[in-house]
Write a protein that binds this DNA or RNA. Structure first.
Length: 254
DNA sequence: AAGCAACGCAACCGCAGAAGC
DNA sequence: TGCTTCTGCGGTTGCGTTGCT
């Protein structure tokens, strides 16, 4: 039987996205919202597979994305979360507003991993490299707190405290993550299921009226990228695609 | 200046689970 | 209930950039 490929390989473009393709995709999503990804390339006039479109949007074009390297608190949070959740990048990413799983995964593999190894910490187990197999029965979180004093301490705003009792992620990984940090107000805030303020409702209205409403009322400082665009080169495909939605008007007001 | 190696990031691939019928 | 389709996730690869010799 076999699984149908997500797109027919023939005639589907691969590789880096061009500014023109980005423009088409942004234009389409701002106009129609995120609908069936499989249909997006066809409707948007792209010779890409839906999967590729989704990836491009979620990892690069989404306006609520932060650009640039992870800062210290974010990095610390990633380490902390990784110690508890393992390579569940999407889970980790969901706790870092504006960051994608891909970004975090890349950052982990290129930066954090090395840092930990340099510090003599196994990035997989979060235990000292020379002590990895000493106490396999100890819970991962217990070990993490022991092994990351320098990470969990002063320079780590998200660091766990001794008062905080965490459930070891690997013992009960299916348990509700909310319980993990219930004693830590900041972390528990991050672990809430309800949307944080940065969760932007990417359900764009499709009618003109709706779009007008969107542009007038939903403009948010987090969308400043549309104006600044210095971080990822929106210049390359111009602003025309946003003008229809009142972004230009917002800009003029400033 | 040229060649090479290492690095970092964007993108692809394949699988698993969810959703729909 | 089982099959099909779609989406999302994590691992991996490819390539452009940067730094070193």
């Amino acid at each position: 039987m076999g699984r149908q490929p997500c797109c027919d390989k023939l005639g589907v473009k691969k590789g880096p996205w061009t500014a023109e393709e980005d423009k088409k995709l942004i234009n389409f999503i701002l106009t129609n919202g995120q609908c069936c990804w499989r249909a997006v390339p066809k409707l948007a006039g792209l010779r890409r597979c839906g999967k590729s479109c989704r990836l491009r949007w979620t990892n690069y074009l989404r306006p609520d994305l932060k650009r640039g390297l992870l800062n210290q608190p974010e990095e610390q949070l990633v380490i902390d979360l990784h110690a508890r959740l393992g390579n569940r990048w999407s889970k980790i990413a969901s706790k870092l507003p504006g960051r994608t799983d891909n970004e975090i995964k890349n950052h982990w593999n290129t930066h954090i991993k090395k840092k930990l190894i340099k510090m003599g910490i196994d990035p997989v187990t979060h235990q000292p490299l020379n002590n990895v197999e000493k106490d396999p029965k100890k819970s991962q979180s217990e070990q993490t707190e022991e092994k990351h004093p320098q990470l969990l301490a002063a320079d780590a705003p998200f660091a766990s405290s001794k008062e905080t009792s965490y459930s070891p992620a690997d013992q009960n990984s299916s348990s509700d993550d909310n319980n993990l940090y219930e004693n830590d107000p900041l972390i528990s805030c991050l672990f809430r299921d309800d949307p944080l303020m940065m969760d932007f409702p990417w359900e764009f209205p499709s009618s003109e009226e709706g779009l007008a409403t969107f542009s007038a009322s939903s403009w948010d400082p987090s969308c400043q990228w549309l104006l600044d665009c210095q971080d990822f080169g929106v210049h390359d495909f111009g602003f025309e695609c946003f003008n229809d939605f009142g972004v230009g008007a917002n800009r003029e007001r400033e």
